[in-house]
Design a binder for these strands. Sequence first.
DNA 1: CCTCCACCGGAAAGCCGGGTCA
DNA 2: TGACCCGGCTTTCCGGTGGAGG
Length: 417
Amino acid sequence: MHENEGDKMNIFDNFLSSVCIFKNRDVLRHSYTPENLPHREEQIKQLVELLSPLLKGGTPSNIFIYGKTGTGKTATVKLVMKNLEEVSKKVDARVVVQYLNCEIIDTAYRVLATIARKLGRNVPMTGWPTDQVYEEVKSTVESKGAKMVIVLDEIDKLVKRAEEALYSLTRINADLSNARICLIGISNNLKFKNFLDARVLSSLSEEELVFPPYNAEQLEDILRQRTKIAFNDGVLEDGVIQLCSAIAAQEHGDARKALDLLRVSAEIAEREGDNKVRIKHVRKAVKKIETDYMLETVRTLPLQTKILLYSMTLLAENMEKFTTGEVYCVYKRLCSKISVEALTQRRVSDLLSELDSLGIINSIVISKGRYGRTREMKIDSDVEALKKALEEDYRLQELKKYEEETRKILKLGIFET
DNA sequence: CCTCCACCGGAAAGCCGGGTCA
DNA sequence: TGACCCGGCTTTCCGGTGGAGG
């Protein structure tokens, strides 16, 4: 390997010699808001038209925007808001824009407090009665004579926990004479409309904008546009962009997914020290995203289901496929070891179907004739990774001690009930 | 062709934590 | 504050069943 003395390895050599694929990686992240949005011209135009009264002292209607994830809702609104603020400064229209992500700011109090702070009031993030904050917002807006646009992203999250905030916000204009508040609600959940109070709904959706999913060609355009900024020239093998777009288009036309796929593919290429992103990297990326997603769901599973899955990982070492009875037997053993009440087999049966529909295991109900009817299942993802994810749970740590013992019993094939 | 295994999966009721209302 | 309700999770009970083996 080392022909001459000058070839001594430095542990950073790998890093130095690695080719630079990315020019700007952040461009492919969700947080990035691009300067222009291909195939959203129509939505931008509509939004601008709907909001333009603000600049002439009029009152725009409230707007409700919906579309699935990755259809550009947030990006479009942010872009339009940015432009609106700039123009408003230029013509001194006193437009104040506040963007709120309701998943993070998820209570009536926080919503109102954030708005109040935006208006320059020093409202503490906790402590005051909610209606006092509401009054504060009202009086401040009024005294400033401001035109305010409030964007409520992921508004469906608010309904469950803070519907009254929505209610008061939609009615606030009635109490204002000088100022105006325009609400823009964004949601990816269509069913959410059914849960909403009829009065709030009608006020909120005076105007509606729909963001349809992108098709494969549109996704390609989006990727190409970002590629220019994100990558150095010529690092993408032919067909990489097409493949990413095609895969994302198959799944709901989600631009976010397409961008993720491209980014992860490039990261894999980089790690492999390849100077080009190739089709094979995309294939690997698909796999990686899939497993990452699966592991994440596994981590959030309730304890009982985790023990159940753990039992299956042990079984998987000895046999490819196993039945409900076998799994239940191991599961019960493990439960008793860590003094957890075992569930009934009936319940376990349901948990197994849930795991099946989550795609973590693969199961079918088969008949083994004389030997009964049962669900036969297998784990077809990476068992080791799965096990590792399960062992992260401190409550399962104990089980490692009994692993050997359990394994021995399994080898003997003894399943007592 | 019948039996009978080993479980499936529906129905209903119990339990529990949290929220609501008077 | 306590009575009450709601929804999710779980248990109990049980009728149902595809097909290997007799």
